[in-house]
Amino acid sequence: MVLHYAGGGKEMREEHSPGRTPAPLDDCYYQVRLIQHRHMHPSPITGGERYWDIAYNYLICHHGYTFVGRGLASQPGANGSRYTNERYYAICGLIGSGDPKPTDVMLRETKAVMEWVRRYDQAGARVEGRHVKGHKDVDRDPPTQCPGSLYPYIGNGYFD
């Protein structure tokens, strides 16, 4: 599996802040729909790829909500190349490089989603070594910092 973040800069709107009670499901859903819109309708100014749907298999927000993108048994489009998209699921944390570090509930839910995907689809079964990689590990052209503040949790084995 390849772990992503929502993007560089501050991705979260003020309403979508960790610690907000009650956690606003409709606002988290809005964040996912915004990403889906960007993937399907790239800006003519900044460019980007045009996907048939959101490029991630699953997305997890700070509040611990999981959103199904392409789901199980569907090839993602977010991993940088056809080769990596054919071999890895794409899981996105709804966090940006300018946002606070990931919350404990976000990390636990991300790990639970990864375990669920492994159990039901043998994710990573054909890959030698570590099953979870950061986007920057599999897509170096152009260089990326993705998954930002989620990356240290890959290196310390949290998700394996």
Rank of each mutant, 00 (worst) to 15 (best):
G96K: 06
S17A: 15
G8F: 04
C61D: 15
W52Q: 11
G129V: 00
W52L: 09
G9C: 04
R108Y: 03
R82H: 08
V32E: 01
H39I: 05
M12F: 05
A90S: 13
R82M: 09
G96P: 04
L34N: 07
E14L: 12
G157E: 05
Y151Q: 12
R130E: 09
P24T: 11
P44W: 05
M106S: 14
P76H: 03
Y56Q: 13
R33N: 10
E15Y: 02
H41I: 10
A73F: 13
Q75W: 04
Y30M: 11
R20G: 07
D121R: 05
R50P: 04
V132S: 03
G148F: 00
F159N: 12
G157D: 05
H39Q: 08
G80E: 00
N156D: 14
S81P: 02
G96D: 00
D99R: 04
G9E: 05
E14Y: 07
F67E: 03
S97L: 02
V113T: 13
A123Y: 00
G98Q: 02
A55S: 14
W116Q: 10
N79Q: 04
G47Y: 04
Y83V: 08
P147K: 10
N79C: 10
V32D: 00
Y120H: 15
Y65L: 07
W116H: 12
E14T: 12
T46R: 14
H41Q: 14
V132A: 06
N57C: 06
Y58N: 08
H37I: 05
D27M: 12
T110M: 13
A90H: 00
R50M: 08
T66Y: 03
D141I: 11
R108A: 12
V68D: 10
V132P: 04
P44E: 09
P142H: 05
V2M: 03
E49A: 14
K133N: 08
E115M: 10
G71A: 03
